[in-house]
Simulated scan of single mutants.
Amino acid sequence: MPQKKQPPTVRLRRLAAELRRLRSGADLSREDVAEQTGINTTTLYRIETARARPQKRTLMSLVALYEAPAEQRDYLVALLRDAGQQGWLRPYHSDLPEEYTAYISFEDEALGVRNYETSFIPGLLQDEDYARAVIRGVLPTATEGEVEDRVRARIQRQGVLTKSKPLRFWAVVDEAALRRVVGGSRVMQQQLRHLVEVTKAPNITVQVIPFGAGAHPGMPGQFILVEFEDPMDMDLVYIDSMAGDLFLESDAEIRRYRSIFDNLVAVALSPNDSAALIAEIAQERARKGG
């Protein structure tokens, strides 16, 4: 069985971006570089798109060709040295999709995450029973072992919210996600109570778009905008859809999704009013015998 490749890290993405910038600044095409260094164009493409980690001698050949100053060469060598460091280890998550494990790595290294959800409570705010019910519902053919692997991964991910420098998490959720009864009334009531509690953390903001807001820019589907502290680290958008997982990284795409999120914030209830609505829906569930 082929070995599962490591997902890219923020450092590897940064190294790739720097090498692209240096080549562009030297006014060289990939074909020019291949001719002058012997590094084939396919290998160079994979290095510049963070699909492959270059060997040190390859990196040194490139920075010499690009005439990078000594200080920058040292910086790139340090990036290469640390490029394989994952945000957290997943010894029992080897069967998770590569795109998802890549997202987990980026999430752990992020400064902030903005998450819009249409149908679910955001993964970082789910309790264990709700997460299990969601995963079973979305993946009806998954084995119990596969379900439990994903539940453990989801719960372990939530450590980013309580680590020494916690992730800044801002979620906008459609009211439909709060009213859909996932896992039964008791599980849903418990999840809503959990959501009320986690919204009290200073690094977590939750806003709800009520049904009364009508049509809004988020109706086509959910997305996650990941933001990094170092300006050298490119922000990215992660979309989990029926067609597969997708990462978007271009400036135009990041601006578009940031604008969409800002619009969603504008039509959503304030954080305080959102917390009140969540508590009200939880009480409704309790009155119905949840």
Rank of each mutant, 00 (worst) to 15 (best):
I260R: 04
L236H: 02
R152H: 10
E227N: 08
G244D: 08
Q222H: 13
T141F: 11
R132L: 00
E249K: 10
V267P: 02
L161S: 05
G218A: 05
R114M: 11
I121D: 08
G214H: 07
L96Q: 08
P202Y: 05
L15T: 04
Y116R: 05
E48H: 03
E48I: 05
D174T: 07
V265M: 02
R152I: 04
P217V: 11
T101K: 11
T199Y: 01
R186G: 00
V173G: 09
I39T: 05
I281C: 09
V208E: 08
Q283A: 15
A177Y: 11
D127N: 15
L89Y: 05
Y75E: 14
N115C: 13
E71A: 15
T141E: 14
L96I: 06
I281L: 15
E99S: 15
A201M: 09
G123L: 07
D32P: 04
E107Y: 04
A171T: 11
A243F: 12
Q189P: 00
A131Q: 03
Y66T: 02
K165T: 12
P122M: 10
Y45L: 09
R30P: 01
R20W: 01
K288M: 11
P69M: 02
Q156L: 07
D129N: 08
T101R: 15
R255D: 14
G289S: 09
M188K: 01
P97Q: 06
E175L: 07
L161C: 05
P97H: 04
S24M: 12
R285P: 00
H216G: 06
P91S: 03
L80Y: 02
L264A: 06
D174I: 05
S241E: 07
L178Q: 06
A68S: 13
T118S: 14
D245A: 15
I135A: 04
V33G: 01
T58R: 04
E35R: 07
R157D: 08
M60A: 08
E144Y: 00
I47W: 01
I281V: 15
M232H: 10
D74I: 03
R152Q: 12
Y92L: 06
S259C: 03
N272I: 11
